[in-house]
Amino acid sequence: MIYAIGDLHLDYTEKKSMEVFGKAWENYQEKIFNNWNKIVKKEDTVLIVGDISWAMNIEEAYIDLKKIDDLNGEKILLKGNHDYWWSSLKKLNDLDFKSIKFLQNNSFFVEGYDICGTRGWISRDNSEFTDHDEKVFKRELQRLKNSLDFNKENNKKIVILHYPPLNSDKSLNEFFGICKDYQVEYLLYGHLHGPGHKQIFEGIVDGIGIKCVAGDYINFLPERIS
């Protein structure tokens, strides 16, 4: 089976509080680790859609990532906006985890699906969107295409993003447009917490199942996708 969850915000130092985003974040790390192996079996795969660890460098992140590695299932990880520790793909792969793969300009074939994705970015109609944001936005669109093109086989596809594929009015943006062009089956995202949940859009549009899997939104229970 394939599951998904995002925004674990692990912090082995326990110095970073997420409770400002609501009661759902009380003892959230305990919830994550208690829930995971009750739901996920060793033969399953979990897609983690960014904001994985509060660590600032790869050495510190290793401590949190090792905890994930020790949980049941294979894991495919995507960079979020707070994953400052995320390094080059070579350095990440050199960590040599037994069950973790890193998604960036590539894809992984799992249970009949190509797992594709990229971080994404804030929408172009955001009031704070700048020329720099435009450069990042275009780069992220290209990274999504790179990922979707990585496997030349005509497989079914699941796309994971960190940022929602949404404009400020909850209409679908260019990231969804690419998914439509590639006939993606599922489009998953995270990033939205607490009051931000009112910005969530879910449903089936043009045959694509759109779902938010931010940790607090799904009560830190990995969501079954397929």
Rank of each mutant, 00 (worst) to 15 (best):
D51K: 03
W54K: 00
A55H: 11
N57Y: 03
N57W: 01
I58E: 05
D64Q: 07
D64P: 01
K66D: 05
K67G: 07
I68L: 15
D69Y: 11
G73E: 04
E74L: 06
E74F: 05
L77S: 04
L77N: 03
L78V: 09
K79C: 03
K79F: 05
N81T: 03
H82S: 04
D83Y: 07
D83L: 04
Y84Q: 06
K90S: 04
K91E: 14
K91Q: 10
L95P: 01
D96V: 01
D96N: 15
K98D: 14
K98F: 09
I100P: 07
I100V: 15
K101N: 09
F102C: 12
F102P: 04
Q104Y: 06
N105R: 14
N105V: 03
N106Y: 06
F108Q: 09
F109H: 10
V110Q: 11
G112V: 12
G112P: 11
D114M: 14
C116A: 07
G117R: 07
W121K: 05
I122T: 13
I122L: 11
N126M: 05
E128M: 06
F129L: 06
T130F: 09
D133A: 12
D133L: 01
K138Y: 03
R139F: 06
L141F: 09
L141T: 10
Q142E: 15
L144C: 12
L144R: 12
L144K: 13
S147E: 08
S147Y: 12
D149V: 00
F150V: 03
K152H: 11
K152E: 14
E153R: 11
E153P: 00
E153N: 11
E153A: 12
N154A: 13
N154E: 14
N155Q: 04
K156Y: 08
K157C: 03
